[in-house]
Amino acid sequence: MIAFDNVAYSYGGGELLSDVSLRLTPGSFHFLTGPSGAGKSTFLKLCYAELLPTAGRVTIFDREVRGLDRDEVARMRRRMGVVHQDCQFLDHLPIAANVTLPLAVSGRDTSAQDLADLLAWVGLGQLADALPPSLSGGERQRAAVARAIIMSPDVVLADEPTGNLDWDMSLRLLRLLVELNRMGKTILVATHDLNLIRNAKQQVAARVLRISNRRVQLAGADL
């Protein structure tokens, strides 16, 4: 699904990631942990081709990203749901339109009932017409999750998705990700929330990747 082969990424003269080789196989569930600034967001951006590796190969859906043109990258991203740390909304559009944006850009219709159900599920049923700047951090994050899964993507990448959520909502989100994983979707969640990881491991065979000293390694059972 997503493969890294000897991948390095440098920025501003410094190397953020070095010699990363790993496979995210279809249907797998991974957490990515590491200290702040270790390169978790960079790793995720490499996973959805927002960044290109400075060395090595990143392969997504069996295509090396370096050889893809912009349209191919766009089509590839339609098979991915990404929850960004800073949510990334179009502030002039209501939440409903932001959540359905992936469907709109790929020319697919939106079922009003499905949208209402999804918004209700993430606790935003009453805020469909609200503009993103009027929402709290937690509400924005839930809307970002709804947008990431509305296309029923093959891969869900989430960068600190529970950063602004309370514990109950975090668990609801986790249950959703577990459900998606059981449906065969590949999940990668960058988080520093060890309680969330421990909880997840009780429900699903999640593996934990840790970024340390520019390298990504499989973490042991010491979480």
């Binding site: 959805y48 927002e50 912009r70 349209d71 990258v73 766009a74 089509r75 590839m76 991203r77 339609r78 990404v82 960004h84 990334q88 909304f89 179009l90 944006l101 992936p102 850009v105 790929s106 947008r147």
Partner: peptide, 13 residues
Amino acid sequence: VIRVLRLVGARDI
């Protein structure tokens, strides 16, 4: 706006 659209899979056209 363009960045967000690209992130959700919008083609240039």
